[in-house]
Design a protein around this nucleic acid. Structure first.
Lengths: 206, 206
DNA sequence: GTCTATATAGTGATAGAC
DNA sequence: GTCTATCACTATATAGAC
């Protein structure tokens, strides 16, 4: 089913505004104004603001989980390194994604339930989890990584990655950085985070 | 100047609601309803919603910087350990503080400028920064800590601490945890974070 | 100081003309 | 499919009675 170009444009503009300002602070009038049409048209295509939002939210939410696949046939350290690279790349190209998701999940109970349901439905993730865990346990057993829960390690990594992008607007605003400097900063942060993680989990028995 | 008890109650209630739902999602009508008075009274005491909010925001913002003082006469590792303890304690007793501050700073340009100005005004922070940095450089020079920028280390620590509390609503909601379990979880996270940090920066030359 | 009433503006959503 | 007009609602803020 081919979409009307205007419908596409509304969807596109809504995405920009929702990502920029969140659900509450974005009105259908704002969207219409930016598109250059009238506000009724937004409701004609998507009926409610909520339905329009959820199309965007569920798409963005899937991006969050898109990096969990791990390259088989390799060791834990390489897999983790690749994961950090992939996730960082995703976030560099979608800088507002972390705050957008977190904000909506924290602010609204129904979004949180929706998100939770999606996670549980996707049994895939359990599969990935146990694959990761087996690799980690092997490294621990063989004395290359100090004993650590996968859940803890995951939280460490996610904290470091996500907060980098949540705090990015403060960084670029406080220090008046331009796009080139921001890119340099982000690449620097990626390496610093990797260094902390890999040194932090490395067993000192070797 | 003694405050009217109702004025105090409005301020208190506004604080709860702003911390819970943020500026946008809290109306002066909400506040009045929870206090048990009428909406006009909120405006009588504070004139505008913005002025009421800023009283709370600036107070909360100061809390963010309240843990920077470092205990003199000690080594870097101990000082960092104490800092993490102090900050974690502050956040455990003010769990909504991180998201509240971040949310307002990201959503509104004027709040960001206000925050920035406050940071710059407080030259105190520079003093603390160079004190921390001297101690760190000493540890690096003597081979106990691997070379690292203080800015990077600070960002690591803040990321790990702050994200723990930003994501806390998701944790307690997803896994249906009660208050006791949450406390256990938080204490566990604190130790896990310390472990990562201290192992991550420790020089392997010793 | 506390109330009711209201001015003004903005919201999401729909009806109906073209 | 796109528009104008409008409804019902909620918001902040103020005026004025008591």
């Amino acid at each position: 089913m081919k979409k009307n170009p205007l419908e596409e444009q509304i969807l596109q503009t809504a995405e920009e505004l929702f990502l920029e300002k969140g659900f509450d602070a974005t009105s259908t009038t704002d969207i219409a104004k930016k598109v250059g049409c009238n506000q009724a048209l937004v409701h004609y295509y998507f009926r409610t603001k909520e339905k329009l939002f959820m199309q965007i939210f569920s798409k963005k939410q899937e991006m969050v989980f898109s990096c969990l696949k791990l390259s088989e046939e390799t060791d834990f350290q390489t897999a983790l390194n690749d994961f950090i690279d992939a996730y960082f790349e995703l976030l560099m190209q979608n800088r507002k994604l972390p705050f957008f998701i977190i904000n909506e999940l924290i602010m609204r109970d129904d979004r949180r339930q929706y998100f939770r349901k999606k996670v549980i439905e996707s049994l895939e993730y359990l599969k990935y989890y146990s694959a990761w865990n087996m690799m980690l346990q092997k490294e621990i057993a063989e004395g290359r990584i100090r004993p650590i829960e996968l859940a803890d390690l995951t939280l460490h990594v996610v904290s470091l990655l996500v907060f980098t992008f949540i705090s990015l607007p403060l960084y670029s605003d406080f220090f008046k950085k331009d796009e080139t400097e921001i890119r340099t900063y982000l690449n620097h942060r990626k390496e610093a985070i990797k260094e902390l993680i890999f040194n932090g989990i490395k067993s000192n028995r070797i």
